[in-house]
């Protein structure tokens, strides 16, 4: 057969591309279930019309508390609201025994990153959605996928394995911070964001 050599070479390239772009991401990430389902939309929707800050609060010293503690949930959910299984689990397994929910955090950063929410949200007035996306209106939690090597959520790299974000809020790696800082001429020093 003519062109057998080049054909095979091309096949090799194609095979590698298929593995690299489709099989590799599946092998690299492992899906892990969240302990509970959470519906942001119910909380932020018309019925309750809560804002982000009502649950994702700042502490007195200005640090951001991130995912609210169970005490915060208990303010409303001391008894089940509605009859869903989720609601029952929330109250029985977490609220009543005052046990924190072991959420898997999509935006967890390494220990050496210092990200003060107060500076970004209060001083620079950046909207939550600009970094976290519109999940405040989602009615279920996305699948949590953990990188088998680095141990961080897939959301840090972004869902697109190429690293090119499909949405402006996708990806939470350092280049994302650097880009935004450069745009605002805040690119002073490594220690600004590293500890």
């Amino acid at each position: 057969m003519r062109f057998k050599g080049p054909m095979l070479f091309l096949a090799g390239i194609l095979l590698a591309l298929c593995i690299g772009w489709f099989a590799f991401p599946m092998a690299l990430y492992k899906s892990e279930p969240q302990p509970l389902q959470f519906n942001h939309a119910i909380h932020t929707g018309e019925q309750n019309s809560m804002t982000c800050e009502m649950c994702h609060e700042f502490a007195a010293d200005g640090t951001f508390k991130g995912i609210p503690s169970i005490a915060k949930c208990a303010e409303c959910h001391s008894a089940p609201i509605g009859t869903t299984q989720n609601e029952k689990t929330l109250v029985e397994q977490y609220v009543t025994p005052q046990k924190e929910i072991p959420w898997k955090v999509y935006s967890r950063q390494p220990d050496n990153a210092y990200f003060p929410h107060a500076v970004h949200v209060k001083k620079a007035e950046i909207k939550c959605e600009e970094c976290h996306g519109p999940h405040g209106s989602s009615d279920h939690l996305p699948v949590y996928q953990v990188n088998r090597i680095s141990g961080y959520s897939r959301d840090i790299w972004g869902h697109n394995i190429s690293g090119i974000p499909s949405h402006p809020w996708e990806g939470m790696k350092m280049d994302r911070c650097v880009r935004c800082h450069a745009e605002r001429h805040r690119d002073d020093s490594c220690l600004d964001c590293h500890k």
Binding site: F58, D61, G62, T63, Y114, P116, A118, V119, K122, K123, K195
Partner: peptide, 9 residues
């Protein structure tokens, strides 16, 4: 860092 966080808050 802590002082900056506090100041921003």
């Amino acid at each position: 860092h802590a002082a900056r966080t506090r100041a921003a808050a």
